[in-house]
């Protein structure tokens, strides 16, 4: 008997379960202790969905690099969608930052108890998390304007993959540092 599942079924199962469970992490805050639930949950959900999407974007660069027909088109529209999510999450992040640095907020609390958390982790994260916006838009614009010159092994497809890799790294810095910060002190 042949297997009733193929490789695609397993990959889709893994992606769906990972997405569902990762989305639970910010959603747990709905029944949590945050004083600013709306901003916190929206920023957390935005960041989680963005990172999940950016993983798909990074995976879509591989067929693009191999020059598979139609791969660049798929990559481009998924990347534009992720770019919109990046912008929305940055806006939610700015909104949440008000509560973070407000009177008796986590910034003050951390500066008195463990200044490193604010001075090192937060100060780094808030800037690195902005980088995916120009990186992602740069890669998407290059994909659009140079779509007729994308050949396997070409410099331009390599540059697009480099930009997307840096885009993904910076997003993951934002997610890992953000998750770590909320573990130490909730906004």
């Amino acid at each position: 008997m042949k297997s009733i599942f193929n490789a695609r079924d397993f990959a889709v199962t893994q992606a769906s379960v990972a997405a569902l469970l990762f989305l639970c992490i910010p959603l747990f805050n709905v029944i949590g202790f945050s004083n600013h639930k709306l901003e916190a949950v929206l920023h957390g959900l935005g960041a989680t969905i963005t990172v999940i999407m950016s993983c798909q974007v990074l995976h879509l660069t591989y067929p693009m690099l191999r020059g598979k027909k139609g791969a660049a088109v798929t990559l481009e529209w998924v990347l534009w969608l992720t770019n919109i999510l990046v912008l929305v999450t940055i806006i939610f992040g700015n909104w949440l930052y008000i509560a973070y640095r407000g009177p008796d907020g986590p910034q003050q609390w951390l500066m008195y108890r463990s200044p490193e958390v604010h001075l090192i982790l937060m100060e780094y994260k808030e800037f690195v998390s902005l980088y995916p916006l120009p990186l992602g838009i740069a890669a998407a614009v290059l994909l659009r304007r140079f779509r007729h010159q994308l050949e396997p092994g070409s410099a331009i497809s390599g540059i697009i993959a480099l930009l997307i890799t840096l885009f993904w790294i910076c997003l993951l810095v934002g997610l890992a540092f953000g998750l770590g910060l909320t573990k130490l002190k909730m906004v």
């Binding site: 740069a138 290059l142 304007r145 140079f146 010159q149 331009i156 930009l163």
Partner: peptide, 14 residues
């Protein structure tokens, strides 16, 4: 056919 300078412009401005 686009000029490669466009790519350099994007990298530098980012």
């Amino acid at each position: 056919q686009r000029k490669t300078g466009e790519i350099a412009a994007i990298l530098l401005s980012v």
